[in-house]
């Protein structure tokens, strides 16, 4: 019984609590590599605390959709964080759903965010929303196919089962199709999380604004929720990546010592991928909007190849 309560709380703490830290870490490293001192690694927390204590200014033209959106986005990503294995192979809401549900819960969050961006009636929001839909439409096939390649390797679409299978049979991990799926998923994650070759997370004023353009009218608590949801999304996506492709060290039960080791390794792995994101952001310029389909098209081709090579390896 206690395990039924501990695990969800643990996962929520990790995902909700540490997601701003990941963002802070990325910003800090990036600043350092550009030989700036950069803000404190805890800056995202300060921002959130500040924003949560403020009242909100809401656009007159907007409706209840606008006010509901931050909650819907936040909660849908909270649900995802309970379906994804984080520290242990066991997952709190295992019977609730699989990767398909996760993909469509992301779609739910996105759907409402785009609606809210249209709700304010400003051209910025509309532009951001339209581009977000374009990028996600291009990213979704690649994401689904790469996850399918993994699902076919592990014979299940359930993330907990996938991680379990890959953990126990490490020969499966030495698999070219997983490598291809990994590459494809990496590209997709960069696009979905709105990082640099696709979107610039630091400003809404660049002409290619996507995610930040949609958040333009949010303020106070709403902005805090939306920002928090976006950093949680990044962490959840990285967690999926890490626990599918590098599952070593993840606890297979709820033993305390196992969880501690799992947590330490988890921090290292996520830190490593955050660092990779920094490197990517440092070494690439933002793509032109209409080059993005090319990038995502490449990811798509990689994921198709992942599945084809799966047929051959079998």
């Amino acid at each position: 019984m206690t395990s039924n309560i501990i695990l969800p709380i643990l996962q929520l703490i990790v995902i909700v609590g540490f997601s701003p830290l990941v963002k802070g870490f990325i910003n800090k490293i990036e600043a350092r590599l550009q030989s700036r001192r950069g803000a404190s690694i805890f800056q995202p927390y300060y921002n959130l605390v500040k924003l949560l204590q403020k009242d909100a200014v809401v656009s007159e033209t907007s409706s209840w959709i606008f006010r509901a959106t931050p909650y819907v986005t936040f909660v849908s990503i909270l649900i995802i964080s309970l379906i994804v294995p984080v520290l242990s192979v066991k997952v709190p809401l295992n019977f609730t759903g699989d990767i398909i549900l996760i993909i469509y819960l992301f779609a739910l969050a996105r759907f409402f965010l785009v609606l809210s961006s249209l709700d304010t009636g400003s051209a910025f929001g509309g532009m951001g929303g339209s581009r977000e839909m374009m990028v996600s439409s291009m990213a979704e096939p690649a994401m689904i196919l790469s996850l399918f390649a993994v699902a076919l390797t592990a014979d299940s679409t359930n993330l907990s089962n996938i991680t379990n299978t890959l953990l126990n049979d490490s020969i499966l991990l030495l698999n070219p199709s997983l490598l291809l799926a990994f590459a494809a998923l990496g590209v997709v994650i960069i696009a979905e999380a709105g990082r640099i070759p696709v979107d610039n997370p630091y400003t809404h004023l660049e002409l290619t604004m996507i995610h930040e353009g949609m958040l333009l009218e949010f303020s106070g608590r709403y902005l805090a929720l939306a920002e928090w949801a976006s950093s949680m999304k990044l962490l959840v996506l990285l967690t999926i990546l890490v626990n599918i492709f590098l599952p070593w060290g993840i606890a297979d039960g709820l033993a305390f010592s196992g969880l501690i080791i799992a947590f330490a390794l988890y921090v290292v792995k996520i830190g490593f991928f955050a660092f990779v994101i920094v490197i990517v952001e440092m070494s690439f310029a933002k793509l032109r909007l209409f080059r993005i389909p090319n990038l995502l098209g490449t990811a798509f081709i990689l994921s198709i190849l992942a599945i084809i090579s799966l047929y051959v390896v079998r």
Binding site: L174, P176, L305, S309
Partner: peptide, 13 residues
């Protein structure tokens, strides 16, 4: 054999 497979796929990429 798997290592060679992976190298092969890298070449394809």
């Amino acid at each position: 054999s798997r290592a060679i497979d992976i190298l092969a796929v890298l070449m394809l990429i």
